[in-house]
């Protein structure tokens, strides 16, 4: 959807036009749910939090000042909603969908009980990916959001800075520290030959 169309829709949503709201939700629901899903790894949380995002759009469309693109604005709401959710919930390792706790490490369920028909190389690759994903879960809520936007959404530092309302140098620093933390977690496992 074009930026102009987005702005027109926002103006109509501010006047509580339900048809425009439905059009807006339809055009963004996929992106927002999948951004949150790649952050939380929980389908139910993704839909619940995406609903929170769209409710905020419905309630605050009138305060949108068009200082940024509508797409950046809604991604910002989504990022903040997901970060706050992670901060509040402080998810225990075992409650994340698709992951379980093994010896203090969160490992994907399908790795813990692998399908024996899978070739060995795929199982090893999955195993390594699961351990790396476990380490990603250990990043701070902000570091993780910057990481998800960079690696899963393929956003540039400038775009991440606009979404997260940070300076580009802060984003640079967040992502540098995120990588340092991943290395810090994973290096001992590598030295033990576990990855």
């Amino acid at each position: 959807m074009s930026d102009e169309m987005d702005i027109i829709l926002m103006e109509r949503i501010a006047k509580k036009d339900e048809a425009s709201f439905e059009l807006f939700v339809t055009s963004y629901q996929n992106k927002i749910i999948n951004l949150i899903y790649n952050y939380t790894h929980s389908r139910s949380d993704a839909e619940e939090l995406a609903s929170d995002v769209f409710i905020k759009v419905w309630n605050s469309a009138g305060s949108f000042k068009a200082r940024s693109k509508v797409s950046t604005w809604i991604y910002r709401i989504a990022a903040n909603t997901a970060i706050n959710h992670k901060r509040k919930k402080q998810l225990p390792s075992s409650s994340i969908d698709g992951f379980i706790n093994i010896s203090g490490n969160k490992i994907k369920k399908d790795i813990a009980a692998p399908d024996n028909k899978q070739p060995q190389s795929i199982m090893e690759k999955n195993d390594r990916s699961a351990i790396i994903q476990t380490a990603v879960e250990e990043l701070s809520p902000q570091q993780k959001m910057a990481f998800v936007l960079s690696k899963y959404e393929c956003r540039s530092y400038l775009e991440i800075s606009q979404i997260m309302k940070l300076s580009v140098s802060s984003v640079e620093s967040l992502l540098f520290r995120a990588k340092q933390k991943l290395k810090q977690i994973l290096l001992p496992l590598r030295e033990k030959g576990e990855i």
Binding site: E18, E22, S51, F54, R128, K151, Y152
Partner: peptide
Amino acid sequence: EILQNLDPAEHIDVSPYFFQKLQ
């Protein structure tokens, strides 16, 4: 190596009743 072994972005389909639930 760490970044190359990251799981690819996952994509889930939105529930067909998402908008109704939202309303």
